[in-house]
């Protein structure tokens, strides 16, 4: 039986996270279909059809699915998903929101945030904030899975040649309505897919001081992140938070500035290839995971770092 990947998109662009989910899906079996559910999202379906490894794109274009409200889209996915062996979605806030609802409608378990496919029914996933890895076998006929995108390479966005099939199923549970959204605008790369991430913590002192690391970020083409302490202190908005309860990143280079390295934060970044810590407290736990540590006052060091780049 085929595998159904649910596309993450904003009705005009296919989000990169979908490409990682497609890679995970191809490791579970060969016939990968992608469902694009939204409103006015034909362009997304066309992008999905070009993704390497995708053999079929299902397009559910209906006003009901515009904001991917869990109540409506879960009914659609549960209906289509009955004919698949696996239903896979990237573990973004959107996928995390509707996918367990799909699993319950199908009366099967969900296996959350897998980082490795061992076989078609067995997967590795982190538990206890990444301090242990559980190898879990599904005993259900349909495997409902969310994929931690940093665990899988992105499938190529070009080279595929899937056909697009329209699905005209409209589900409206009638219990929820979209009111609005406040999306933070940024010219920098997206945190979860950036090659370099520089994050600030409580040590930054205030929100204005984040300008120091933003300058370094601009030189490196990096995304800017933050620890929970910096978010809770109101320095930066919460969508910048890296950690167990924020975003999980695994860039080539992660620079932690003024971050002590609590378990919660490490869970979000310790799979980065190279970790740099800049902290004036040499006992800070961040130094235990850092490849390169610099014990110094960030206010001296960060401007110097910017000059040298």
């Amino acid at each position: 039986m085929a595998i159904l990947v649910i596309a993450e998109h904003d009705n005009s662009t296919l989000k990169a996270a979908t490409l990682n989910a497609v890679t995970a899906a191809t490791q579970m079996g060969s016939d990968v279909h992608v469902l694009v559910a939204g409103a006015g999202c034909l362009a997304v379906a066309e992008q999905a059809a070009n993704v390497q490894g995708v053999s079929q794109v299902l397009l559910a274009d209906d006003a009901t699915y515009e904001h991917q409200l869990a109540e409506n889209i879960s009914l659609l996915i549960a209906e289509l998903g009955k004919d698949y062996s696996h239903i896979v979605v990237p573990a973004t806030t959107s996928g995390k929101n509707f996918m367990p609802r799909v699993a319950a409608l199908l009366d099967v378990a969900q296996i959350s945030e897998i980082v490795r496919v061992d076989s078609a029914d067995t997967f590795d996933r982190p538990i206890y904030a990444g301090n242990a890895i559980a190898t879990v076998q599904s005993l259900d006929a349909i495997k409902v899975i969310t994929v931690r995108t940093t665990g899988f390479d992105a499938a190529s966005a070009e080279g595929g040649n899937a056909s697009i099939q329209s699905v005209s199923v409209s589900h409206n549970a009638g219990t929820s309505a979209y009111v609005g959204a406040q999306i933070v605008k940024s010219d920098r790369p997206e945190l979860t897919s950036a090659r370099v991430v520089i994050s600030g913590g409580r040590g930054m002192g205030n929100g204005e001081n984040f300008a120091l690391i933003e300058k370094v970020a601009d030189k490196l083409g990096a995304a800017v992140g933050a620890s929970r302490a910096a978010v809770d202190a109101g320095f930066v908005p919460n969508d910048m938070q890296v950690g167990q309860t924020g975003k999980i990143v695994a860039p080539d280079l992660y620079i932690a500035v003024g971050i002590s390295g609590a378990i919660q934060h490490l869970a979000g970044m310790k799979d980065s290839k190279v970790i740099v810590a800049i902290n004036k407290d040499e006992e800070a736990p961040i130094f235990q995971v850092a490849d390169y540590g610099l014990v110094a006052d960030l206010f001296d060091v960060v401007p110097k770092l910017e000059q040298l780049l």
Binding site: N131, A132, A134, T135, V136, D140, F287, Y292
Partner: peptide, 17 residues
């Protein structure tokens, strides 16, 4: 589901200052 095993995560090699 069945938990096949639980293992510690891969250790990072020690860094330098």
């Amino acid at each position: 589901t069945r938990v096949v095993k639980v293992t510690p995560p891969a250790e990072r090699k020690a860094g330098i200052k």
